[in-house]
Design a protein around this nucleic acid. Structure first.
Lengths: 337, 337
DNA sequence: ACAAAAAATACAATCGATTGTATTTTTGAA
DNA sequence: TTCAAAAATACAATCGATTGTATTTTTTGT
């Protein structure tokens, strides 16, 4: 029936009322009498009118949309962050555009251009592992956009970040292993150009120092922390000899470690205790269940969204960067008898 | 420095060239000489010009954007589908807006309105579990939009679907249990108003029939298939007595079953074999590892995106609905000795 | 060197909604 | 009844880019 794109002008003509009045009525302006408002609203729904946001946003120079750049949707952590972001955003009347960079700088650049060109009001970004320079964010900022970094904090021209206290979490995890009797703890480190992995390494180092455990550089094994990397790193660790603990910078690699240790007939945790990071769903399913760090993913999303929106709505009220605390979830993989 | 929103008119003024020529140059039209094109492109990048898609899309009535409605991002299956969708979309020059309904009809309606109002060129949707009537899709279709259903097929006014052959998959899974000696197989069914779960149940039933296994209605336990549901259903199943197999409509509930069976000291698979559906990452981590159905998630996304875009670009070429075949991944949880 | 054809550029309307200003209508007090 | 104030509505410009048409400039053939 109504096969077309209905505009305010169609309503305007049908009722012989000026389109400016129609527009005001649809926006519930006090400048239109109740009687005409009713007529207009009735006609609008009769015709199946749906506002054209393109036109509206163009005119008002406001989209009520925020862009979210995420490295990978398939990671449980990120999908929970996104749910948090959406919760707050919808509450405040904003839509969310989600884009995944797949850890590629190339794609991240394209995404930034698209979001800019679509004039989103603000951007939440967790930069890709390849991203060093942040030059590609500059045009959007110059144009007056707001950016908040989440999960992977960056220092950049008046932008703020929200992240977890990786250092402290890492310290706690390592301390936990030490307190459970570990003396030679291997650390699976992530790519060191990512700050977050650098901090995790530092937390490990400082915990060792606090408990006067002699530092051995060969105990730090760096990789990209895939499950396969976890297995490979575990093999290398076993060659070192006398290992009694593994602290991995993520759960995925820790899972690899557990699988390999089990295959080798090594008892977890009594021979070697294992601690991961992230509290992925698998961590509670694997046997033995994995001690790990739980990050407040959903809350981080909510707060990130909150910070960004208050920045969008009042540039002067830029809040400080936030660092969230974490929980150590103690499970079977680290409790020696 | 360049703190503003640069428009084609700024370039136009700076070079004393009409804005229409600037526009054509930026779109690489043959109507502009190479020389001026160069001058314009140079000035554009000097000023940090970035096209305003709102204006452009408004004028051309085309957004090169597709909307994706997904029940839940955190499900591995869906995040893989989305990656597939994005792959094809980006290849063909389309952006993707992802929205999650969280299985709520209310949210789904809002999302449809937003996508419509943003004039996306097409929509890929997997309807929420609450969604029965599809009336809320009608305004968008009337306006000329294209919709393709993925994963959860629906029959609706000339729209097409892409889904997996749940019936066949289910038949295969049940058959596999039977061939491994199961005679009294419990089926964890999902909400029966979702077609897909209906089909899974039917596949189970027909497999039983083929092998002349007497049907017992009490063996079908319906739930929402969360892990807790899986545990509860398993308890109920055990009360029935003489159970030797469980075929669950998803992995999550199957995991619940395995956990509970292990707690009860029941041997898997020898006492009771278990088969799931989805091939979630946990299914390979749990012990015993879970036999399950692997769905071509990424490919489904690619094909869905492909179908939608060809429909957008040529309405006359609406392809038929597609039904994809699946693999049964056989693991330890179903191989009796 | 000159008209006609071709190439390059300029003009102006348009997409749909918003909004400041102007005009008309209604209200109410004298 | 009359007129100023208030309320309701109409007019017209605008957001930034696109595009059909018109105009100017250049090229080409003779």
């Amino acid at each position: 029936m109504n096969s077309g794109k209905i505009t305010i002008h169609d309503i305007s003509k049908a009722l012989n009322i000026d389109s400016s009045t129609v527009s005001r009525a649809l926006n519930d302006s006090p400048r239109v009498s109740e009687k005409t408002k009713e007529r207009i609203l009735a006609k609008a729904s009769e015709l199946g009118y749906q506002r054209n946001s393109l036109a509206s946003n163009l005119r008002t120079n406001k989209t009520y949309t925020i862009g979210v750049v995420v490295p990978r949707l398939s990671r449980n952590f990120f999908s929970n962050v996104i749910s948090g972001i959406e919760e707050t955003a919808y509450e405040k009347g904003y839509s969310v555009i989600i884009c995944q960079s797949l850890e590629s700088l190339e794609r991240e650049k394209k995404i930034m251009a698209t979001l800019f060109s679509n004039r989103v009001d603000g951007i939440l970004i967790s930069t890709s592992m390849q991203t060093e320079s942040l030059d590609h964010l500059r045009p959007y900022l110059n144009h007056g956009g707001s950016i908040v970094f989440y999960d992977r904090p960056r220092y950049f021209e008046g932008c703020t970040s929200i992240s977890i206290n990786d250092y402290k979490a890492s310290f706690k995890a390592t301390e936990h292993l030490i307190q459970n009797g570990c003396k030679r703890i291997v650390h699976f480190a992530g790519p060191q150009l990512v700050d977050l992995y650098k901090n995790r390494k530092q937390g490990y180092l400082d915990a060792l120092q606090k408990y006067n455990i002699q530092f051995d550089a060969s105990l730090i094994i760096e990789s990209k922390l895939s499950e396969a990397d976890g297995i490979a790193s575990t093999k290398r660790a076993l060659e070192l000899g006398n290992i009694d603990g593994i602290y991995s910078s993520n759960d995925t690699a820790a899972i690899g470690a557990i699988k390999h240790l089990k295959m080798e007939g090594i008892n977890i945790p009594n021979d070697i205790a294992v601690v991961g990071f992230n509290n992925d769903p698998i961590s509670s399913v694997i046997e033995p269940s994995l001690t790990t760090i739980n990050q407040p993913d959903f809350d981080m999303g909510k707060m990130a969204s909150h910070m960004l929106i208050s920045q969008i709505e009042d540039k002067t009220k830029v809040k400080d960067s936030q660092v969230l605390d974490i929980d150590l979830i103690i499970r079977a993989s680290s409790l020696k008898f």
